[in-house]
Design a protein around this nucleic acid. Structure first.
Ligand SMILES: [Mn+2]
Ligand SMILES: [Mn+2]
Ligand SMILES: [Mn+2]
Ligand SMILES: [Mn+2]
Lengths: 149, 149
DNA sequence: TAGAAAGTTTAGCATAGGCTAACTTATATG
DNA sequence: CATATAAGTTAGCCTATGCTAAACTTTCTA
């Protein structure tokens, strides 16, 4: 019953894949927020709602609501009408996310994708890259120093 | 004002990236559904709610609700208590999606990612790959015939 | 330092995409 | 052919993510 077995295995793998995608998407917004907040703090000394809203391309109120969730999740701290800070956990998540994002974007560049496109595609792809794939991408980058065209 | 200009350009590119990700996610579920329905019809002669639900790892009622949206979007046709069919537009979307999915998965394999991981990661990545990136991936696959390990 | 401008928050709304439980219809089997 | 089982549907609930408009606070500036 090798064939039946393969079928069963495939079925499980298939639904596992979709479950992973849904889990990735659940984590995605939090990852993008903390990464952006970390960048804003590094670049400007502080992170404000308006900047986040502008960079994400969403309304201010949307950012406020999301930050409340992130605060509940222990990633962010804030006081009314003040700038936003990251907790220890928030910083860690931001660092991990930045590293992954970096590798994915460098990888796309090394593959020969135009710079603007690489930036855009990396923003979505980064959240679906497993440890194995990230390792393979990093290896490729180190073996293929970036050459334009 | 080259620097100011670069900043403005980056800001626009950044928010464009997030907007693209949100658009990709809006289109994602429809793409996965029609692809799966096409596969079911090819393999079993028909596509039923239960099969879709099982393969996606969601409840039956979720599938029913989603199919209603897809019907409204003109991708799917159905009659009560009967199997599901694709419209012309649905088939086209399914074909395009399958092709893209195929390339992404083959690409990950060619990169050296383990088969199960490639399958899983491809399910998410496929929706964030632009035409440029897809072309680069296809080229890489054709130049790097799959070698395990 | 008073008032205007800028930024933040709240309230209220909408849609997508999940779930369970209860009900209805179709199909398979004795 | 009658009924048990399988499949599909409906209702009602929930959370995440968006939006606009209005209210409130802080900050800048004349
Ligand atoms: Mn991202
Ligand atoms: Mn995604
Ligand atoms: Mn697919
Ligand atoms: Mn997919």
């Amino acid at each position: 019953m090798a064939l039946g077995n393969r079928k069963g295995t495939n079925a499980k793998l298939r639904s596992a894949a979709f479950k992973r995608v849904r889990a990735d998407h659940s984590a995605e917004l939090a990852g993008d927020y903390v990464e952006m907040i970390a960048d804003l703090i590094d670049d400007h000394g502080e992170a404000r709602c308006t900047d986040i809203a502008m960079r994400l391309g969403v309304a201010n109120a949307t950012v406020v609501k999301t930050l409340k969730r992130l605060t509940d999740q222990g990633l962010v701290t804030q006081e009314p009408y003040r700038a936003i800070f990251l907790t220890g956990e928030g910083w860690k998540l931001a660092e991990d996310g930045k590293r992954k994002h970096q590798i994915v974007e460098q990888f796309l560049l090394a593959l020969g994708v135009p710079a603007d496109t690489a930036k855009i595609d990396a923003e979505g792809i980064e959240h679906h890259v497993s440890a194995d794939t990230l390792k393979a991408m990093a290896k490729f980058v180190s073996r293929n120093p970036f050459h334009s065209r």
